[in-house]
Each structure stands twice: as structure tokens, then as C-alpha cells.
């Protein structure tokens, strides 16, 4: 079977007048259709860079990105990229905000409008369609940002720490919501997070990156009895702590501490 996403020997460096920053080095992995992948790693190790590369906002220095077997630049696959902050525009209503992508791509016709309204309805934002973003709670804003991404009907979803702006309690429930939305719609998704328990509670596999320049330290498959159970159920499962400790130990590996000292110079 051809994987949904295939990344091979990917490297990327940023260039500024102050110097060169190697952000990612020799990254290779594949993602199958319908899989939910979590990426964890120390701050600044190149996680956001990885998503920017997959979404095509940046071009790799070396290596290749293939989607459904075709190179990214020729692929017709729709990629939805949900950024760290919601960036809802205050001068637009919630409905106008979630329709922004359709508006830009000139797809705002009756069926798509209908679809957006059904998404708002499904995720409890319908009564707020005409409200301003500032009238929404943090969790509602995050859901609006997800609907804005889903409105373009992406096949591949990239999520960059989508819950980091939320308080812990909202975070658990929004994470629960969003991961069930993604599972229901059978989307392929890559989630970046710095919360290890979040990674263990949602992912099919966890990709653990080293300090900058990010390399893959380990790809950890996660499976719970009963298949894709909800994040909240996973957190209460006996296997949860074992997975959590394993991710923690890989991240704490003495090697990575060593390269961290080198990197800080």
C-alpha cells in the first residue's frame, strides 16, 4: 500500500545575516491513511519547521516529501494546517472567519456554505455564527480555528500545538473533542505537542525528536485495548503510564543532553 505521506532524508536550515540555524536533519518516516501521529521534542527542535515543510510553506534543502506517492509540489492532496494560535480576525464574524479559506480559494458557493454551517452546528458554534471572536471562550475559539481548517475538506491535517493556549481543564475536553472529530472524519493527522500525556492519549504512533537540529530519536507505536478509545479513557488505562514513561525516558536520554550542551553554544 502506498503511504499517505512519505518523508525521506529531509533536512532544513534557516539562513539569516547572523548565521545559519540547522533546524531539521535527516528526517524519514511514513504515515498511513487514517493514522494519527503525534510529534514531541524539546522546544526549538524544528517541530513547526517540519509542518511548514509538509504544508509547502517552506521548501526542503534536501530530501523528499511524497503524498500518495507523488511529490508534494505535484500533489493534488488538500492539506489543512492549523497553527499554534487561532488567529481569528476580530473584524470578521465567526462565520466569516471559518469561511476565510473558502473565500480565498473562491469556493464560497451554496454547498460549501451549507457544509460550514453544518460544521458549526456539529461543534456547538452555530448560535455564535454572527458573533465576534472576542465573544468566544478559549475552547470555542480553538474549535472555530479547527472548523476554518476543516472547511477546505483537507485529506491531511497538520496541527501545531493547537491546545497550548488553553487552561488545563479546557485543554483536556477540547483535545477530546478535536481528536474524536478527526477520528470520526477519518482524517490523517499529524499533531505537534509538548505535552507528553496529550501525545500518548491521542496518537497511534509518537515521533520523538532530539534537540536542534531535530533528528528522529524513536518512533513509538501506541496501542490501547479496544482500539482507538477516547483520550480521556486512555488516560485512565493502565498502559498509559508505561507509554508516558517510555516517551519521557527517550527524551531524557543522556545523548540528547550532551547534544543540548553542544547546541547551546
Amino acid at each position: 500500500m502506498i503511504p499517505k505521506l512519505e518523508i525521506r532524508a529531509l533536512s532544513y536550515s534557516y539562513h539569516t545575516m547572523a548565521g545559519e540555524t540547522a533546524a531539521l536533519s535527516n528526517i524519514s518516516f511514513t504515515v498511513d491513511t487514517g493514522e494519527f501521529i503525534a510529534v514531541v521534542g524539546p522546544s526549538g527542535c524544528g517541530k513547526s519547521t517540519l509542518l511548514s515543510l509538509i504544508s509547502g510553506l517552506l521548501r526542503p534543502d534536501t530530501g523528499s516529501i511524497r503524498i500518495d506517492g507523488t511529490p508534494l509540489s505535484e500533489s493534488a492532496c488538500r492539506i489543512g494546517y492549523m497553527l499554534q494560535k487561532d488567529h481569528l480576525f476580530e473584524w470578521r464574524s465567526v462565520l466569516q472567519n471559518v469561511s476565510l479559506g473558502l473565500e480565498i480559494q473562491k469556493k464560497l458557493d451554496a454547498p460549501h456554505r451549507e457544509y460550514v454551517l453544518s460544521l458549526l452546528n456539529a461543534y456547538g458554534l452555530f448560535p455564535f455564527a454572527q458573533a465576534r471572536p472576542s465573544q468566544l471562550s478559549g475552547g470555542m475559539r480553538q474549535r472555530a480555528a479547527l472548523i476554518r481548517t476543516l472547511a477546505l475538506e483537507p485529506d491531511l491535517l497538520l496541527l501545531d500545538e493547537p491546545f497550548s493556549a488553553l487552561d488545563y481543564q479546557t485543554r483536556l475536553s477540547v483535545c477530546d473533542d478535536i481528536s474524536s472529530i478527526i477520528r470520526e472524519q477519518k482524517k490523517t493527522a499529524i499533531l505537534i505537542t509538548h505535552d507528553l500525556s496529550e501525545a500518548v492519549s491521542v496518537a497511534d504512533r509518537i515521533i520523538i525528536l532530539s534537540r536542534r537540529p531535530g533528528r528522529i530519536r524513536k518512533i513509538l507505536p501506541v496501542s490501547f485495548p479496544g482500539g482507538a478509545v477516547s483520550p480521556l479513557k486512555r488516560r485512565n488505562d493502565a498502559a498509559f503510564t508505561a507509554y508516558f514513561n517510555e516517551v519521557w525516558n527517550v527524551l531524557q536520554d543522556p545523548d540528547s543532553a550532551l547534544s543540548a550542551r553542544g547546541g547551546a553554544l
Binding site: S52, S55, L57, G80, Y81, L83, Q84, K85, H87, F89, W91, R92, L100, G101, E103, I104, Q105, R148, L152
Partner: peptide
């Protein structure tokens, strides 16, 4: 990041101007 948002939704610099900068 707002400019990246427009790019991630498939927008060009013209969209950055009309959807973000001017409003």
C-alpha cells in the same frame, strides 16, 4: 503568523493585503 495563516489557506500576497493588512 497571520500571514502564514493566509498562506496555509492557499492565499497569495494579494490576499494578505486584502484580508489581513487593510482590514
Amino acid at each position: 503568523d497571520q500571514i502564514r495563516l493566509i498562506a496555509s489557506l492557499g492565499g497569495t500576497r494579494r490576499h494578505v493585503l486584502t484580508k489581513v493588512l487593510l482590514p
